[in-house]
């Protein structure tokens, strides 16, 4: 059954992300990142390297090295972030969330700048929404969260920490939904702080020109999945 999607004036979104994965990894990534930064610097003045640590363990001992694999550009207020690496182009909006239209429009604007530089087609599309929600402490979780852990009867039922990660197939259009739910340290007395993280990803034909409408479809699905995931009592707190 399709859930009722409502406008939330106090949407609990802490980060909204749109991502493209490139068909081919960049060959001269440093030069691409440099050129891209020069073109967006006025809007994204902060630049930091994205590093990857590699640890090699063998019977001879262990060794580690850190590589710079990408660049993270942020707006002056830190609310808008664009991350590029050899295989990905990712834009995010941190809280306070504005609208899908503004997120998509900024993503499209930046992609039009980046696309001629990276010279690669798109192989996958991702839309990810991370929500921070507050659940009444001591309440039965089945009354609030509809995708949740189950503890067998006969075991203690008072749960003080959880991390749920599920991968499920999206039938139409074909894709995957990565669901992450986790408990964070308490922020409000009497409430449990929880994260509901939905990451929708779709593989596309690199020949496709329909990527923007696929993003809109992903947005519809992410709305459906959000409203299907929480009880009406929880949702009304954000109306």
């Amino acid at each position: 059954m399709k859930p009722t999607v409502q406008h939330l004036s106090k949407a609990p979104i802490v980060e909204a992300i749109i991502a493209f994965a490139l068909e081919k990894p960049l060959t001269d990534s440093d030069a691409v990142f440099e050129q891209f930064y020069a073109l967006i610097q006025s809007d994204y003045p902060s630049r930091n390297p994205v590093k990857m640590a590699q640890l090699t363990v063998s019977d001879q001992g262990s060794s580690g090295e850190t590589q710079i694999v990408g660049a993270r550009f942020a707006s002056a207020d830190g609310k808008r972030v664009c991350l590029v690496d050899q295989s990905n182009f990712i834009c995010s909006r941190l809280a306070p969330y504005e609208t899908w239209e503004s997120l998509k429009s900024e993503f499209e604007r930046l992609w039009k700048i980046y696309s001629p530089l990276c010279n690669s087609r798109i192989a996958r599309v991702g839309v990810r929404y991370i929500n921070k929600i507050f659940l009444p402490e001591g309440e039965d979780m089945s009354l609030t969260v509809r995708t949740r852990p189950e503890i067998a009867e006969g075991l203690p039922q008072s749960m003080f920490n959880f991390l749920v990660r599920l991968g499920v197939k999206i039938p139409d259009p074909q894709g995957v939904l990565m669901i992450t739910e986790a408990q964070l340290p308490t922020e409000r007395p009497g409430f449990v702080t929880a994260v509901l993280d939905h990451d929708l990803q779709f593989r596309i034909n690199p020949e496709s020109t329909d990527v923007w409408s696929l993003l809109d479809k992903a947005r519809e699905l992410k709305n459906d999945y959000f409203f299907a995931s929480l009880s009406e009592d929880v949702i009304k707190e954000y109306l």
């Binding site: 001591g138 039922q157 749960m159 003080f160």
Partner: peptide, 8 residues
Amino acid sequence: MILVAALP
């Protein structure tokens, strides 16, 4: 029934 509790 799972009761959520604050994180220590």
